[in-house]
Amino acid sequence: MRNFFKKIKKSIKDFLWDVRKKIKIRQRKIGAYLDERNLNIATKFPGWAKALLYLSPALIVLAIFTFWPIFNAFRLVLYEGYNMTDNTITGYTIFGNFIKVINDESFIFPAQHTQGTAIVNTLLIVFISVPISIFLALFISVALNSIKPLKGFFQTIYFLPYVTNTIAIGLVIAYMFKSDGGLINQIFGLGEFSWIERGSEHWSAMFVLIFYSIWGSLAFKIMVFLTSIQGIDKQYYQAASIDATPRRRIFSRITVPLISPMIFYILVTSVIGAFKIYNHIVALFGVTGKPEGVNFTMQSIVMYIYKYIDGGGNNLSIAAAGSLILFSIILILTLVQMQASKKRVHY
């Protein structure tokens, strides 16, 4: 029986070998034919033309789904009274749509008797959850790297949130923070404290949201940090241990600088990701970002933009203005980060 399989395997490999040989011969023949008639792409076209040819599939997709929408955002923001159904406008404006957004209720300035605005909520999430999650991920990955038994087990546990649906986790978190018999209230003996439901406060809802977004984003960060820590040459640690370096100094002076390119990458992408926060809020507070019976809104910038995209297509100019504001905030912050990182990131 085993011999039989060996024979089959051998004949398959022989067959593949022959096919490869035939293809090579065919290629050579085609090449000779093209050379004869001076049609060979490799010699006929200059380098940049070939590069463009090979890049074209990606460029076409990008043009349709990225560059054209970006261009449209800039176009829409200049229109006044744009109507999507009959494609008409009543006039042009430069700053009009931006002013509308800025003066809009719950974008920068809170509405009456309401706490929280799109900008405030988004900035709170970015500036609280991103630093905390990066520090936590660093410590957890260093700890994971130093344990030997059950290493795979712990890595799987910390990686679980990454493969779990955001909305599903959101429902679980919401259930944990339920006022009536929720896990958190039971553990800490808080009675029927309302975290995110009727009668809750802006800060408690924000706490739950930040808790959720940190937990949800830890997995990927830990994975990236852990792999880069495992890639550090062991000799640096041996050298440090011979020099009697305490653990915290090994962490701050060797581990962190050596993986600083990865930390910087994670910082930039998480800041951008946190600015675009959407699913987390929808999962906890619904599409309006405002549960019933509360005096605050949890709406983020992206939710604000979606609200105007949804509105029948007549407010697309406002949505475009909102996206451009988000775009410029992210752009400025990323440039600041790049500048600040120059001295601290060691490639």
Binding site: Q235, Y236, Q238, I242, D243, T245, L258
Partner: peptide
């Protein structure tokens, strides 16, 4: 190892790449 008071030079030197020569020597 850290209590033995030895100096060790590794085969590929294991100099900390992110520190200057001065900081490398100062580190111990």
């Amino acid at each position: 190892a850290e209590k033995r008071g030895i100096g060790l030079v590794f085969q590929n030197y294991a100099l900390y790449p992110h520190m200057t020569v001065y900081k490398n020597i100062l580190f111990p």
